[in-house]
Amino acid sequence: MITVKNLQKMYKIAKPGEGRFATLKALVRPQYEERRAVDGIDFTISDGEIVGYIGQNGAGKSTTIKMLSGILVPTAGDIKVNGLIPHKDRKEHLRNIGVVFGQKTSLWWDVPVIDSLNILKEMYQVEDSRFKKNLEMFTDLLDLSPFLNQPVRQLSLGQRVRADLAAALMHDPKTLFLDEPTIGVDVVAKERLREFITEINRERGVTVLLTTHDVVDMEKLVSRVIVIHAGKIIFDGSMQGLRERYGGEDADIEAIVRDIYQEGGRTV
């Protein structure tokens, strides 16, 4: 269960000055400007849902994910994930969640995948039997065996994301945050990732919140979408609802998404 109430995040950014003596001016008095990355959002996600979190680059998706996982502290508002406040009950919270950033790995670069998994076992204090069972299951479902003994730096992107997913799930988290997990992965590998996420959700009841730009992800994987634009939530509901609101019965999802990205969507 995730509840988010009036969540806000503001950044202060150093502004490079302009004009002839900008360098000197910046030396004396640095200028800052404020940017609202997340501007008062609310939503609730029940246990066992798969929710797609979509929006343009810079709309505030990653900032939200980072706040939900406890890396960032909100400027204002409340977050509760599984009854815990992420940045306050850090350790407890981290045991309950798994996070994957598609863009960068959280595995150790120079050592074989299996070594990374082993050290995570120590970190999360996963029991031997549990670890063994999970390892078997994920190796099977994600087809890890061909590269389990290869160092991460030698893996292809698709393999790496699979390894990262397995790593994020070794400690049986209740909630999974995925930030663009399918980005840059080929069609076949994407399909496999989707099957895996669905499987994990169905078999273990893991709640999944994922960001994506992939239209197929939205149509096949998620049961509900939350759309964020310029830091505000502009839609929250089923894919069918999204279609009805922005495009009509048989509208092309791709076109709808493009409209939303460009101008916050055209309602019909």
Binding site: G70, I71, R90, L94, Q103, M123
Partner: peptide
């Protein structure tokens, strides 16, 4: 800069 610092904050150690 490389982004690995986030990973440290995501583990319960």
């Amino acid at each position: 800069v490389s982004g690995s610092f986030d990973a440290y904050l995501l583990r319960p150690v």
